[in-house]
Amino acid sequence: MSNPTTTVNLAFTGASGAQYGLRLLECLLAAGCRVHLMVSRAAQVVIATETDFKLPGAPKAMAVALTEHFQAQPQQLLVFGREDWFAPPASGSGEPAPLVVCPCSTGTLSALATGASNNLIERAGDVALKERRPLILVPREAPYSELHLENMLKLTRMGATIIPASPGFYHQPQSVADLVDFIVARLLDHLGIDQTLMPKWGESRVAQKLAR
């Protein structure tokens, strides 16, 4: 548990790419992080469609299922309902944790870019922006419309980091899981959390020079 005191707010929304969010959750828990999870209704549909994992609807049951599935520690994972306005991510006076929306639907992009706070995920994003906390958004759409691009530019200018689910291939992936891990490794790097999914660029070159 290399990051035992780190809390990360994590949101799953209805874009395709549920594997990215679930893998990120697995890695955060394995690193010893406390995770405050928010899941949209559309995300539950996508998870059921793209994976064999069926999430219960109630937050408490969802937390139990995910804790058991990923073998997390008791109380390490907390799941908050869509209108739980007393959850820590809902206020700037809550714990100052980063927020990752993975995957991030274009609807969520629009809501965050315009300051909508119609549910806990949108409110959490609004809080992250106004408090200047790290906000990482992982959109997965193709192609992007002009409106999508404008929203991403607007959010970037407000301080958010956009990391599209566009994996690289220079690490010679052998499976879909390798492609997923490429993006998850970048997310963990941006969060400052130790990861061994992907070597840092240039590490092998540094090792060669040090060995001489």
Rank of each mutant, 00 (worst) to 15 (best):
T5E: 12
T7Q: 09
V8W: 03
A11P: 04
G14Q: 02
A15P: 08
G17A: 12
Q19P: 03
Y20F: 15
Y20Q: 07
G21L: 06
R23M: 13
E26W: 05
C27E: 14
A30Q: 15
C33Y: 02
V35S: 01
V35E: 13
V35H: 02
R41M: 09
A42Q: 01
A43R: 00
A43S: 10
A48C: 02
T51M: 04
T51S: 09
P56W: 03
G57F: 01
A58L: 07
A61L: 15
M62C: 10
A63T: 12
L66W: 13
E68R: 05
H69F: 11
F70R: 12
A72V: 02
Q73A: 11
Q73L: 08
Q75A: 14
Q75W: 03
V79T: 01
E83D: 07
E83W: 04
W85K: 06
F86L: 07
F86C: 12
F86M: 14
F86W: 09
A87L: 13
G94M: 02
P96N: 02
P103H: 00
T106S: 13
T106Y: 03
G107V: 00
T108K: 05
L109K: 00
A111L: 07
A113Q: 04
T114H: 15
G115N: 10
R123G: 14
R123V: 14
A124E: 03
G125N: 04
V127A: 11
L129P: 13
K130C: 14
K130Q: 09
E131H: 07
R132Y: 02
P134T: 01
L135Q: 06
L135T: 03
L135A: 07
I136Q: 02
P139M: 10
A142N: 06
P143M: 00
E146L: 08
L149W: 01
L149K: 08
L149E: 01
E150P: 07
K154F: 01
M158W: 11
I162F: 04
I163A: 13
P164F: 11
S166N: 07
G168E: 02
H171I: 05
H171W: 07
P173W: 00
P173L: 10
S175V: 15
S175R: 08
V176H: 12
L179V: 10
L179I: 08
D181P: 11
F182V: 14
A185H: 08
A185D: 06
D189F: 13
D189K: 12
H190L: 14
G192L: 15
I193Q: 06
I193M: 11
Q195M: 05
M198L: 13
R205P: 01
A207P: 04
K209S: 11
K209L: 14
